[in-house]
Amino acid sequence: MKTKICGMKYPDNILEVGALLPDYMGFIFWEKSARYFDGLIPDLPKSIKKTGVFVNETVEKIIEKVQKHDLQAVQLHGHESVEFCLNLKTQLAAGIEIIKVFSVADDFDFSVLEPFEEVCDYFLFDTKGKLPGGNGTTFDWKVLEKYPSTKPFFLSGGIGLDEMDAVNEIIKTHLPVYAIDVNSKFEIEPGLKNLEALQCIAIKNK
């Protein structure tokens, strides 16, 4: 099980969290976010995949950020179409992963995923809320029992220490859970992660 720590903002905190060796570290390039990142990413261990999080951004802007920050993954957290994802995929350098986010409620229609199968590397399921992410609430994970695909996915949405037992139960099922994505439940304030809390989960779980 891999781990992604998202919503990083402050250089010193980034380095402290980086020392825990999460598999992915997310930087939000959406200006309306309280966790908006507008600096330079400090040097991190090569094993950490730096992930840019974008919301309805242009392909050109995404490519610019990928090149500026040497990103290894792109997370699309808006209403990006299949055509948009395909266009982006053809312009990204080989090996850069595309993670397409879907906001899930109890009535989520999994059939919308099928057209995206060929244009992204992973899905990410987050809780449908007022903001594109970082709402700090979980969705009913039982809805994932209807997941019709074998494409691996990130599980996100209000995951904190209190949710880890439930997460581990999901991991034991047939579902292709690739990684957990944590953010607001491990924060002191938006963008500032609680190192002690993060040490309580299996960051390096390989």
Score class of each variant (00 low, 15 high):
Asn13Cys: 13
Asn13Glu: 12
Ile14Gln: 04
Ile14Ser: 01
Ile14Asp: 15
Ile14Leu: 14
Leu15Val: 13
Leu15Glu: 12
Leu15Lys: 08
Val17Gly: 06
Val17Phe: 10
Gly18Pro: 05
Ala19Val: 00
Pro22His: 09
Pro22Trp: 14
Tyr24Met: 03
Tyr24Lys: 08
Tyr24Pro: 04
Met25Phe: 08
Met25Leu: 01
Met25His: 05
Met25Ser: 00
Gly26His: 11
Gly26Pro: 15
Gly26Glu: 08
Gly26Ser: 15
Gly26Thr: 11
Phe27Val: 14
Phe29Arg: 05
Phe29Met: 11
Trp30Ile: 09
Trp30Phe: 15
Trp30Gln: 12
Glu31Ile: 06
Glu31Asp: 08
Lys32Ile: 00
Ser33Gly: 01
Ser33Ile: 02
Ala34Asp: 12
Ala34Tyr: 01
Ala34Trp: 10
Ala34Asn: 07
Tyr36Pro: 10
Tyr36Ser: 05
Phe37Leu: 08
Asp38Asn: 11
Gly39Met: 06
Gly39Lys: 15
Leu40Tyr: 10
Ile41Trp: 06
Pro42Ile: 04
Pro42Trp: 00
Asp43Arg: 13
Asp43Met: 13
Leu44Trp: 00
Pro45Leu: 00
Pro45Gln: 05
Lys46Ser: 08
Lys46Asp: 00
Ser47Thr: 10
Ser47Pro: 01
Ile48Met: 07
Ile48Ala: 07
Lys49His: 06
Lys49Gln: 14
Lys50Met: 10
Lys50Thr: 08
Thr51Ala: 04
Thr51Met: 13
Thr51His: 07
Gly52Tyr: 05
Phe54Met: 11
Val55Lys: 00
Val55Pro: 12
Val55Gln: 01
Asn56Cys: 14
Glu57Pro: 07
Glu57Lys: 15
Glu57Ser: 13
Glu57Met: 02
Thr58Lys: 10
Val59His: 02
Val59Ala: 03
Val59Ser: 02
Glu60Arg: 14
Glu60Pro: 07
Lys61Gly: 03
Ile63Thr: 04
Glu64Pro: 01
Val66Asp: 03
Val66Lys: 12
Val66Trp: 05
Gln67Cys: 09
Lys68Trp: 01
Lys68Gly: 10
Lys68Cys: 11
